[in-house]
Design a protein around this nucleic acid. Structure first.
Lengths: 151, 151
DNA sequence: TAAATATCCATGCTATACCATGTGAGTGGG
DNA sequence: CCCACTCACATGGTATAGCATGGATATTTA
């Protein structure tokens, strides 16, 4: 079971290369494909990363839609068509395509945020603001975890 | 498992030749046939490409219909009759037939869009509009993947 | 024989695999 | 308890092989 935890900040060099945190890499050993799959978050200025095997799961779920339904077309195009397969180099780095760098507003520092079976990549500064906002929401609205359902 | 991911844009030369992205090529090469099977999309101005192995899967599913039933005939005719087999040249290129080029409105740049177990070929400019629409739909309608039955 | 199609050859570029260096944390010894 | 050493991880730079692309030549077909 892959489990991405905690937040790690690494540098993005001018070619878009960035080290995937070793803790995350360790979760991916034994995969057929030594690397990650990235695509744009639908709701946030961030990239979402998965193990390649997780894409198979997504592929299976997509088949639950009716074939030729507009919803299926839209999802398939955004999920698969917008995704990229990035393999590690010898040092465990990936190269982020330019358009994804722009989409996430990535500057020098990239923040890898573990979210269980997936992770996100944020620009560190944007994430800091976003975090502050989230904390405020939790405090103001008194959000709590319901018992039972949480994984 | 074949899994077509990401979008690649390649040039179409004046003879209709276009390189199939190497990433896709690796998944398309079978024992029987070195190439790709193309269809007209039923819903969009695009071509759909499948691996040879996927065609066998479709063939298997068709056998679930009664032999010689009108449904089987109709399906088989549209599915197989409209399909085109295109083999690679030494450099991994295919030659797109004129009628398919017209159908998809292909100009200079052809976009290969990975959609999981199949891929589509779009004119790059037309795709840009369509992709924008797909992203908007996913975001506004809050489309998500349905939960799978098994984890 | 001419046109259309397939095969072969040549080239520039870019992605990626490789090598080399810096740095910080953790450990063991003094 | 503190210091030094070591190792793993992050980071920067470079070279090479694969890939996309263009053109030329052989082969087939009408």
């Amino acid at each position: 079971m892959t489990l991405f935890l905690s937040t790690h900040i690494n540098k993005v060099d001018k070619k878009g290369r960035v080290s995937v945190p070793a803790q995350f890499r360790d979760q991916l050993v034994g995969e057929n494909f030594q690397g990650v799959v990235l695509f744009r978050s639908n709701t946030q200025p961030a990239l979402e990363g998965f193990a390649w095997s997780y894409m198979q799961e997504i592929s299976r779920r997509l088949e639950n839609f009716d074939l030729f339904s507009p919803e299926q077309d839209d999802l398939a195009m955004t999920v698969f068509g917008d995704s990229v397969q990035l393999s590690f180099d010898g040092e465990g780095r990936i190269v982020l395509p330019m358009d994804l760098v722009e989409f996430a507003g990535l500057a020098e520092r990239a923040a890898f945020v573990g979210l269980g079976n997936k992770f996100q990549i944020w620009d560190a500064d944007i994430l800091a603001k976003r975090r502050e906002e989230a904390r405020r929401n939790v405090r103001d609205k008194g959000l709590t975890l319901p018992k039972g359902e949480a994984a």
